[in-house]
């Protein structure tokens, strides 16, 4: 991967990639692995980008696909700690992946969601339109709003139960 490609096509979207990878990993080691794999996959698949969507949408899509694939691979190898019942909250809350405590708590709650719901809420929080969310996830735009509301309620409930 050339430095130019990394600097111009990946680095401007690094924050987005980091936010997504954090939602699918519970340790710093995994996070760095996922981040690197996403970068590599963006570089690998650059020839497949035909300009039918924006580059940022493309980055979102690749990042989510890579995270979901790695997560499933990990699950199939028996690393079950990503299941919603047994999440290691300590990694993000006590050790603090982020400086903001409330943000750490929100991430813990996000990791309790299903894989697709995590993707959905991340895109929503990144202020993507329903159309863009549907495009990235390859779903129908119709019930996205309802689903987001349900996810938000669930997140609030999890945070209240766990941290308040």
């Amino acid at each position: 991967m050339s430095n130019d490609f990394y600097r111009t096509s990946i680095l401007p979207y690094a924050a987005v990639i980091i936010k997504i990878c954090r939602a699918y990993t519970a340790s710093q080691e995994d996070f760095e692995d996922y981040y690197q794999e996403v970068c590599l996959q963006i570089w690998r698949s650059r020839a497949n980008f035909r300009g039918q969507c924006s580059w940022s949408t493309w980055v979102y899509r690749v990042a989510l696909n890579v995270c979901l694939t790695l997560l499933r691979r990990k699950k199939s190898k028996g690393h079950t700690y990503f299941s919603s019942d047994a999440l290691p909250d300590v990694v993000t809350v006590e050790n603090g992946a982020f400086a903001d405590e409330q943000l750490n708590q929100l991430y813990v709650a996000v990791r309790h969601l299903s894989e697709v719901d995590r993707a959905l809420i991340l895109l929503y929080l990144e202020e993507k339109s329903y159309g863009e969310i549907a495009e990235v996830l390859g779903t129908n735009v119709n019930n996205i709003g309802v689903r987001i509301n349900r996810i938000k309620e669930r997140l609030k409930k999890i945070i209240n139960e766990r941290f308040n």
């Binding site: 980091i18 690197q36 400086a99 929080l125």
Partner: peptide
Amino acid sequence: IETIWKEGFLHEKSLVAPSV
């Protein structure tokens, strides 16, 4: 949730990309 997300990342220093 939207406020936590927006304000949490406003001054977030941990959004520095890891080395590749």
